[in-house]
């Protein structure tokens, strides 16, 4: 996994609540292999018309936001299907952090495992940052994982919480599997005990 430290970029607003993973990555792209260009399929049906032309109003199609690496989202972002491909699409497009008042559980977990940092801030703070992005699309936001802070475009600083282990994995670019494989003996001991209890 790529290391995550500080991300500074314009922030792309997706203000609606309950944006589900079917919108983030439509199901017809689910068969694409892991190394395919998932970013090209991000928000496909909200971003392009059926004939392939761009829907100008969609935030990702506004020139200033095309290269944004931080997303500002509404409540319950990434609800619905557990497809990790939705995170791959966000990450593939270039996003490294998603700021929202709340997330679909599995989406947030998947994000942490793929270098897409889910940042929970108070609804009022997110709404304020979305308003800032809409009035000043060039305004830059900073997400600092080491310090666990978000600096909004107006310079205000907001702390966020993150699971310390996930934070360490992201900061160091290591994954959980390597860590767990190191606990083979405990798992084996559990298996011996568990087998006895179940018979």
């Amino acid at each position: 996994m790529e290391r995550f430290q500080v991300v500074r970029s314009v922030a792309v607003p997706f203000p609606k609540s309950n944006i589900d993973t079917d919108q983030i990555l439509p199901a017809r792209f689910l068969h694409l292999p892991r190394d395919a260009d998932h970013g090209a399929c991000l928000f496909r049906d909200l971003r392009y018309r059926p004939d392939g032309s761009e829907i100008e109003e969609f935030p990702l199609n506004r020139p200033v936001w095309r290269t944004g690496r931080i997303a500002l989202c509404g409540d319950n972002f990434g609800c619905g299907s557990s497809r990790e491909n939705a995170v791959w699409a966000m990450h593939g497009h270039g996003f490294r952090a998603v700021i929202a008042p709340s997330f679909g559980d599995i989406f947030a977990q998947n994000g942490l495992k793929n270098g897409l940092l889910p940042v929970r801030l108070l609804a009022g703070t997110v709404a304020m940052m979305i308003a800032q992005a809409e009035t000043d699309p060039q305004g830059e936001v900073t997400v600092d994982l080491q310090a666990q802070t978000v600096t909004a475009a107006d310079g205000s600083v907001h702390d966020f919480e993150i699971d310390p282990f996930a934070r360490r994995c992201l900061l160091e670019g290591i994954d959980e599997l390597a860590f767990t494989l190191g606990h083979d003996e405990e798992i084996a001991a559990f298996e011996r005990r568990f087998g006895r209890e179940n018979s």
Binding site: S82, E84, N85, V87, I106, K113, L177
Partner: peptide, 10 residues
């Protein structure tokens, strides 16, 4: 409960 692909591998 449902899990993501990285978790499936795990």
């Amino acid at each position: 409960f449902g899990i993501g692909m990285t978790e499936v591998a795990h």
